[in-house]
């Protein structure tokens, strides 16, 4: 089974407002997709639904062939812990914890403690932050925060990685670095979904979708022309 995540006719409404309309797609192992679209167009909402952070009004979400429709909040939390890693729009680090502790934090909740500290240190070293292990978020630059956030998402090697505007506000060099780190997860077998305005980043994925008026449409690049 290659499919990690599948959306079937997903619809999301807030009152009478339709935010997402009949969206279907699949995410296979070792692939990365990008979702682009206007601000306020529902990209983050769609990502939340994929991340099991909120439920769709109708339609089905399947994670590794498990339909989440009948699961309770406890089972959803377990699935999130097992399958999903998040890179949020803002770094979303906990200010009371050091860089190393922030990376390790997800492991505290799903009780995977073995050698986790060494793995976290290795990841931070990989991202050039081995000299910042004991620094608090407020002592770090924006680029460093993003890399820590990425290390945190990768720590437990989640099969599905969801990133919300990961290169937003970053200079081109840093954006390139973050993009490379994210897409490296694809080569390790993870499925990666990136919501972005950054067309350069979107171009590096295997498939780009445009979310417009709540509908997801694939974009076909004319590589020959470009």
């Amino acid at each position: 089974m290659n499919t990690l995540l599948e959306l079937r006719n997903i619809e999301k409404k807030y009152g009478d407002d339709v935010i997402i309309s009949k969206v279907s797609f699949t995410l296979a192992k070792g692939t990365a997709i990008a979702i682009i679209g206007h601000s306020g167009g529902g990209k983050t909402t769609l990502l939340s639904i994929m991340g099991l952070l909120q439920r769709a009004t109708s339609g089905n979400v399947l994670v590794d062939a498990i339909d989440i429709g009948g699961l309770d909040s406890y089972q959803l939390a377990n699935l999130r812990g097992q399958y999903l890693g998040f890179v949020f729009q803002r770094a979303r680090l906990i200010n009371s914890l050091t860089a190393l502790e922030n990376v390790m934090a997800p492991a505290w909740f799903i009780r995977r403690g073995d050698k986790i500290e060494q793995q976290a240190k290795d990841l931070l070293e990989r991202f050039g932050l081995s000299h910042r292990l004991d620094h608090k978020p407020q002592e770090l630059s924006l680029g460093q925060l993003r890399r820590i956030s990425l290390a945190r998402a990768l720590l437990l090697k989640p099969p599905i990685l969801l990133a919300d505007e990961p290169t937003n506000d970053l200079d081109p060099a840093l954006a390139k670095e973050v993009a490379e780190c994210l897409l490296t997860a694809r080569t390790e077998g993870a499925g990666v979904v990136i919501v972005t305005h950054d067309l350069n980043l979107a171009n590096q994925t295997d498939q780009t979708f445009h979310l417009e008026n709540g509908t997801l449409k694939p974009i076909i690049y004319d590589n020959a022309a470009s």
């Binding site: 991340g51 952070l53 909040s73 406890y74 939390a77 377990n78 999130r80 812990g81 097992q82 999903l84 998040f86 949020f88 979303r92 906990i94 934090a105 997800p106 909740f109 799903i110």
Partner: peptide
Amino acid sequence: GLYLAFGATGRD
């Protein structure tokens, strides 16, 4: 919300 995204339950 962040903890819940990590896989924490409401009980946690």
